[in-house]
Amino acid sequence: MRSRFAPDRNLTVRMVTVIFLLGLTYVAFVAALIALLKSVPLVIVIVGALLVAQYWYSDRIALFAMHAHEVTTEEAPQLHGTVDRLCALADMPKPKVAISEIDMPNAFATGRNADHAVLCVTTGLLRRLEPEELEGVLAHELSHVAHKDVAVITIASFLGVLAGLLVRFAFYSELFGGRRQDQNTAAMFAVIMAVSALVYALSFLLLRALSRYRELAADRSAALLTGRPSALASALVKVSGSIARIPTEDLRTARSFNAFFFTPALKESSSLATMFSTHPTLQRRLDALAKISTELGLHG
């Protein structure tokens, strides 16, 4: 039976393009590391181990970082009931359900595929939203799982994570060990730092462009599945307004998961920053939902 989350051809094209371009960058990056470190086995073991860890344990890492835990039907009957209804309506496997014990109102989906996915909501979100608004948010996150863009973002973000780690490693090695290094070693660290920084910048830009589109695609899929674009729009306004009132220092830890969140933990304050954001602006998302309401012949 075909899922009610209809395939999004534009999203698929963007995901394939980003993975292809990042793949080329990844190959070049590994080749550069091999040439610099002169150890094929070492590079392959390190890179391979990090990739496998991020792919297979991304859900556990995310839940741990967000202080979340899986909940049973008995522990969260209403939440499970809503997820059950949406999965039946979308004709897709039900993911694990988790709750994060933080006040920041948000939600995210993670996992390497639909059979190993986790849908997580925060206590702050559950406390603030009405049932129909929560349904819209959950449908949004389930759309990410159905379209496999959670797995794509997880894999694609690996290159940026690796490059970022190498930049820090090279920087601190030069900072604390510079006097003990000969010129050749220092030059090698400088090249590694430069290559890693370039790779990080490329992956950063590609992932941001993909992430912004995937959020609009998930909004649309959720609105069409539930038939209530206005409820999702209301949830967006509530969540964005609530996050804006939470102290910035309380949001910094969560910021690294922005690409996976329903709305970003920290807002971008300038037009340039918005260009590099993981999410479209609130107004753009609301305008897109208003357009869907018109398409469906709904008002408000």
Rank of each mutant, 00 (worst) to 15 (best):
V161D: 09
M1P: 13
I192D: 00
V18N: 07
E75Q: 11
L22I: 11
A259W: 03
A90T: 09
A218D: 05
T25M: 13
P95W: 04
L162V: 14
T274R: 11
G300I: 01
A35Y: 14
S143W: 01
V71Q: 15
M15F: 08
G178P: 04
V199H: 03
H299M: 10
G23I: 02
F64T: 10
H147Q: 15
A288P: 07
R208H: 10
V191G: 06
V150L: 05
L165W: 09
H140C: 03
A65G: 09
A109F: 01
S270D: 10
F64L: 08
L63R: 05
A32C: 12
S269Y: 09
V30Q: 03
R168I: 15
S277P: 01
H80A: 07
L205R: 10
T281K: 15
T82G: 02
A244S: 12
S269L: 12
L286K: 08
Y172C: 04
L286G: 07
L205M: 12
A6L: 13
L11R: 15
L134K: 00
M66P: 00
V13N: 12
T17N: 04
A107I: 06
I243K: 05
A259L: 11
V71H: 13
E295D: 14
D219Q: 06
A223W: 04
A233L: 03
R112Y: 13
T82H: 02
L206M: 12
V71Y: 14
